[in-house]
Design a protein around this nucleic acid. Structure first.
Lengths: 153, 153
DNA sequence: GTGGTTGCAAAGACTTTGCATTGTT
DNA sequence: AACAATGCAAAGTCTTTGCAACCAC
């Protein structure tokens, strides 16, 4: 455990720098939350994060998780997203943009990127008089495993 | 007023049929909500709908609006969506699919469709082993009016 | 008359906030 | 020591649900 990966470490460092710049304080709680978030698979709900963080440090409240995720979002390390039901989920904001493909049966979320789609989005926005700033695209379908599983039964 | 348009009338008829099929009852409240929803511009929040419906019939509660919108969603006449903040907004489910282009400044929502993007989505899903069932795409940017307004100030 | 429907208010899910206490700097 | 951060619980949103009165069929 405590396996480190470059992305998480860079993110962590960036978070620390952000705190210093803003004259905010480093605390064990923030460290724990940010570390777990950055090492996680992404697309975490606050509840999941709270659960994971609590295993490491049971003296942490929901409010702190919410407040820390807001911080992370402000400093650009996390993106807040609302899938299907409107519950907030956070994902690591990575340099390279990607979109989501979601299985309607098992809930699996696969990330992908497709430059040809991005180009067409840009073109479409311009055609309609908009200056494109960002986008959100989610494809919903049924994954291979679930289709296979369906046939077995 | 009471201007009718074909789409709204068709939708209304379809709703009535659905009620009959399910052995549910027609009520003044349901009629009012569905009528206002179908004649509206789309992308209504429950709150907006509640406000509009109340002008016509003040004896209507929030619960009824929620329940009726759920009915409309079940019978395929409305789509429930969660934009930016997770609050539910409903739009008329039309035959032909479209996506959304949203102005980050004024909140204006423009609908568009772009077959080339849809084709690429299909292709992408297949490539990743998914059977595509649907999608959601939102482009965010700044509209012409807002850019113009920005320059004036 | 029967059984679905309504409005209200209460309860739920998720998130934010107030405040005394705790912890960083 | 100053003051931000925390945990808790209370308050806030948005949405759902329980229930007696009500209304469509």
């Amino acid at each position: 455990m405590a396996k480190s990966n470059r992305l998480a470490d860079e993110g962590f460092a960036r978070f620390k720098t952000y705190l210093r710049e803003q004259r905010l304080k480093s605390t064990a709680q923030r460290d724990a939350i940010v570390e777990i978030f950055l090492k996680g698979a992404g697309h975490v709900s606050v509840e999941e994060l709270y659960g994971a963080v609590r295993k490491q440090n049971p003296r942490i409240g929901y409010a702190t998780v919410y407040r820390t995720m807001k911080l992370l979002t402000e400093c650009g390390l996390a993106d807040e997203r609302h899938f299907r039901n409107g519950e907030a989920r956070y994902e690591i904001a990575e340099k390279d943009h990607h979109d989501h493909l979601i299985c309607e049966r098992c809930g699996k979320i696969v990330e992908f990127e497709e430059d040809r789609i991005e180009a067409l989005q840009e073109e479409t926005a311009r055609r309609l008089g908009f200056e494109l700033r960002g986008h959100k695209m989610e494809l919903y379908g049924v994954c291979l495993d679930c289709r296979r599983r369906g046939r077995e039964n």
